[in-house]
Write a protein that binds this DNA or RNA. Structure first.
Lengths: 345, 345
DNA sequence: CTGTTAGCGCGTTCAC
DNA sequence: GTGAACGCGCTAACAG
């Protein structure tokens, strides 16, 4: 089975290789009869053009490199899906690099030095593969300025950001504002918030939304109702216990992620506090498990697919040298389930 | 910023392009002084070789194509992670194609005609990109014979299979056998099983394991304790109600996946049946949420990472033309949590 | 307008 | 250590 190439096709169809190339790419008119003859041979021999050779010549690969810090983290697959969605529609390909950061360095993300070598290496390999641009998907939002140098190739970050490059975010502040409005509309006036680590951008933004909703509705702001967690269920558990021990308990809790909401549920259950009758809970992230908990919790769905899609959209426009008017910030969507009810009494 | 290539390096270092190539690849001895000079220029100009050109010449791309039926399905990212793990260790690259089947065709997987075009197209593009082999990751185990033709390129399937090609599976029967042994060791003699759709291979295999454990331990086999579900929580809920209505209730339930186990928990909770005191539950899949439920459920962890790794291992050996002695079937691991206790005296 | 010839892209590698 | 052919498809220049 000798490899068949454009010249085999040409020979079989009794034309020149140029003609074959023209019919293949529609680069020039070819007489109908000739084209059909060529097409028939291509079909018969099941010829597949060699994109490597083509790319070398035309200096375009239609391929973009995707660097994911860790594909097994919940937000990443959906972002990749958005990237693929766009890529499919525009006949592009994805060269995926998975840094596997969680398995390699655990949670020590504070110092970029811990993983710079992986990132730099990934970029280097992608550049060698002649990708036309790069999308970098973080596992959680944080600044990455100076981590890598793409030697002038366009790069777009998502779920993290740098000072110099475009990054695709979502509207965190609005999301927590809307979650609060939902609670307030249900009649809650004492709403506690359990935050993630406070030096993270999403925590700050989500707190802003919380604060904005409180003040706009002219509710009293009670700092006792603001609890700083660490994104883990255990902190949700502990902080909920503290909240329930307050003389004047909150009637609702906004948890900055679903994982901590699990802790809220646990603490409430142990204290015989019924959700949602005695306490309403809203989570964040719309993690898959949030609909499997008892009760199924109301949560904010993240626009992950859209972020991936937007990242590709922006990247391709940068590649084409278009001036890009900023895309609108994708928004979260409240998923109403069973963990919210009007307050008692 | 004119693109710099091997010949710019050669000129700068005052050698021939051949020499540069030799130092780059270590393909031949180059006098130390010359090599150092070349290396220095490469460093200074931050030269990155063009793998496209190289591939064209050496006819190897070190790239394998991965076709995922849907990256957003729970088992897929971990399999991809295993693939990446192997790829990293062997300096290979992954060209990822995401068929996005769930979003495109929902759950209509019965007829391959519904998605053949996507698969065929994906293969065709990967072949054009000169991948050296393909890994196909299904979203659930089923036969796919005849779906695609790779024109002689090696392909390995995982999480699905064909009659002709290698496929990487895991030891389903053993897993459910072990889950049963765990329950029996705890003292259970009436164990019910809630299966997935019965014409699926995993359902059959897991049932085999169930049956084997029952008979080997000389327990009575009671067909009333065998319930056929459909993998969804709702079926777990309904079937558990049926089981609890039995005159002689089971003391434990083996659910063929964690999602149905959610239904088990719900039904038990509504019937005031305490888990694990009144009823033990073992799930399957070790889905992330299984540790967030109350109680946290004991479940079988799937060897997804290892399957991806093995798929790559086997594929590369097929590519190299090695005779491959079959890898051992990867096994599941029981994750003990809080949903199992001895039956009530 | 249709078809052909031949050089090129960028590294690799053989013969000198 | 070097010159130059080569991989495979594209495309400018040219011919009918």
């Amino acid at each position: 089975m000798t490899k068949i190439g454009i010249k085999e096709i040409a020979a079989m169809a009794d034309v020149s290789t140029a003609t074959v190339s023209y019919v293949l790419n529609g680069t020039r008119n070819v007489k109908l009869k000739t084209r059909e003859r060529v097409l028939k041979v291509i079909e018969e021999l099941n010829y597949k053009p060699n994109d490597i050779a083509k790319s070398l010549k035309i200096k375009r690969t239609n391929t973009i490199g995707v660097i994911a810090e860790d594909v097994t983290v919940f937000n990443v697959p959906e972002i990749i899906d958005g990237i693929n969605d766009f890529a499919d529609q525009h006949d592009m390909h994805i060269l995926l690099t998975n840094l596997r950061l969680h398995k390699r360095i655990g949670r020590n993300f504070e110092h970029t030095e811990n993983y710079r070598k992986y990132a730099v290496n990934a970029v280097s390999e992608l550049l060698s593969k002649q990708v036309e641009g790069i999308i970098y998907i973080g596992v959680h939002p944080r600044e990455l300025t100076g981590l890598i140098d793409t030697a002038g190739k366009p790069i777009v970050y998502t779920y993290c950001y740098t000072q110099n490059d475009l990054s695709i975010q979502y509207n965190d502040e609005l999301a927590s504002y809307e979650a609060m409005c939902h609670l307030i509309k249900k009649g809650h006036t004492r709403v506690a918030i359990i935050s993630g680590i406070m030096n993270s951008l999403p925590s700050q933004r989500r707190f802003n939304g919380y604060y904005k909703a409180i003040t706009e509705h002219q509710l009293p702001f009670d700092p006792q109702l603001v609890k700083m967690g660490d994104w883990e269920a255990e902190s949700g558990y502990r902080l909920t216990q503290e909240l329930l021990a307050l003389p004047d308990r909150p009637t609702a809790i906004l948890s900055m992620n679903d994982v901590m909401a699990v802790g809220v549920l646990r603490a409430a259950s142990e204290a015989d506090v019924h959700i949602p009758k005695d306490l309403s809970v809203v989570g964040f992230d719309n993690r898959e498990f949030s609909s499997y908990l008892i009760p199924r919790i109301t949560t904010m769905d993240l626009p992950l697919h859209e972020m991936g899609f937007q990242a590709m959209d922006s990247l391709t426009r940068i590649i084409r040298g278009e001036i890009l008017d900023l895309n609108p910030l994708p928004s979260c969507t409240l998923i109403e389930r069973d963990s919210v009810a009007p307050p008692r009494g």
